[in-house]
Amino acid sequence: MNTITDSNDVDNTVENIKTDKTVLSAITPGTVRTISGATSLGQVFRDTLTMAWRHFIKMFRNPAEFTDVTIQPILFTLMFVFLFGGAIAGDVKSYLPTMIPGLLAMSVLTTASVTGTKMREDMDKGVFDRFKSLPMARIAPLSGALLADTLRYFIATTLTFATGFVIGYRPESGMRGVVVAGLLIIFTTWALSWIFALLGVIMPSASSVQGLSMMILMPLTFVSNAIVPVASMPSWLQAFVKVNPITHVVSAMRDLTMNGDWGVDVVWTLVISIIIVVVFAPLTVRAYMRKV
């Protein structure tokens, strides 16, 4: 068998594997190796950073896949300001101070849902088997994704403010209020992304995650004080708006940018965010660890 081709094989060996013995010659027998099965906190941290690095490369290589934090915030801002500005406030310029913080909350919070979709897509790929077979921190694919996503929220936040500045937005509290509001919305969105990460882990497919995320986010963001004045709504809707956490986030954004106040809504936003993390992070991690 293979009598004719055997002579070619010899050449292929040289071509395929250079006889550089240094690379693989040091095979230590499996029974002799001293190994530890435990994962240290340092390893969790290192592997999380490595996985975040992986996500950064993927993001910048496929810019089309992160239009939700590049084009969308710009488009949303322009669209809503010019669509509703005249109708609600009489003119665009006087609408901006209320509108930009509302849109900021809306656009940036919405991008959190992508975390779940991406998580599901990633887990369905062959490369995930590789992660599972490595002696790495088991949580790293999840924690790395959540860490990398804060960059996405940062981009969305910056672009929303920048678009506002271009069309004449001048926040009364100056840059300090803008920076604090930006940091708060990034933190809140990161907290929210734990919920979507949980959906990503437990839902059967990426598209089902996306569908459910939209169903949760659409009513929550629109039925709030983000875009239209609450006074214009029927009373039963106003009742919902008042308990909607997004209303508190929007009010917090307005407080910070309009008068630099650390009002009650800023505290509420922080409390809500921390509660979400405290409840959902363990749930997500548990569901995730059961899958991997």
Partner: peptide, 14 residues
């Protein structure tokens, strides 16, 4: 996991 390398039926790389 320290002792094994796994090469799947379909290339499991990113």
């Amino acid at each position: 996991r320290h002792l094994i390398g796994v090469t799947g039926q379909y290339a499991s790389v990113d």
